[in-house]
Design a protein around this nucleic acid. Structure first.
Length: 221
DNA sequence: CGTCCGATGAACT
DNA sequence: GTTCATCGGACGT
């Protein structure tokens, strides 16, 4: 096995390479992104947070995916780009939701990041949320974590393995055992029919920075 | 152009 | 438990 290609970032840590994102297993990507680190560089503020909760969305068959049936619109077009791009969209007119596009070009797969644990530059994250104390409400949920990290729809389309991207992903060596991963159904997609019950939500078991909402058909999480 | 509504979060009762 | 803010995208006219 060749060593995976590594890139230097300003932290000296390992940028996830393009190859990480290109296989066709988006559910696997959702699992493998648990424990990885997302980083933003917005207006010179570099913030880091560990990914603790994800969901997979898989066109064309998954009816919960914005690109279901390979529907191409100006908004979903970036989902058809090759893996490693960022897909950010506005939800309820208020919340910016951050996704990692995966798969080869033409395959509209994405992983929604639903919860992160703040690591670096938490002061800026607190300021963006108008919080004074570190607590799960700061970043446990896709809308609030985007706000804390300074992510908006302006970042949609960014290719994250590129040098000098404003948002990227790193592997800092954090290890996760199989039993550390909790699996559930995805949140807020009741209109997706049977696909609402796919077990495509993943989290780090017991982690307090996981969002509190229940998936479809669930009575506890 | 008009209408409907959403991969949410927060503030209520 | 419920309500609702707020607006771009998607689609039909």
């Amino acid at each position: 096995m060749d060593e995976p290609k590594k890139y230097q970032t300003d932290s000296g840590q390992n940028l996830l390479p393009e190859s990480f994102f290109l296989d066709e297993d988006v559910v696997g990507h959702a699992r493998r992104l648990l424990g990885k680190v997302m980083v933003t560089n917005i207006d010179g503020h570099i913030c880091r947070a560990r990914i603790v909760e994800t969901e997979a969305y898989r066109a064309p068959d998954d009816q919960a995916c914005h690109a279901a049936n390979n529907r191409r619109t100006p908004r979903t077009e970036v989902m058809f780009a090759r893996g490693g791009h960022a897909y950010v969209y506005l939800c309820y007119g208020i919340h910016h939701l951050f996704n990692v596009v995966t798969g080869p070009e033409g395959m509209a797969h994405a992983v929604l990041i639903r919860g992160v644990e703040p690591l670096d530059n938490t002061a800026v994250m607190l300021e963006r949320r108008q919080f004074t104390q570190l607590k799960p409400q700061l970043t446990a949920g896709p809308g609030v974590l985007a706000k804390a990290m300074g992510i908006t729809t302006r970042l949609s389309g960014v290719f994250m393995p590129a040098v000098d991207a404003p948002v990227w992903l790193e592997d800092d060596g954090y290890l996760l055992k199989k039993n550390d991963i909790r699996i559930g159904t995805r949140v807020g997609i009741a209109s997706a029919g049977n696909d609402a019950f796919r077990p495509w939500r993943f989290s780090i078991s017991g982690n307090r920075w996981v969002s509190p909402r229940l998936g479809e058909g669930e009575t506890s999480w």
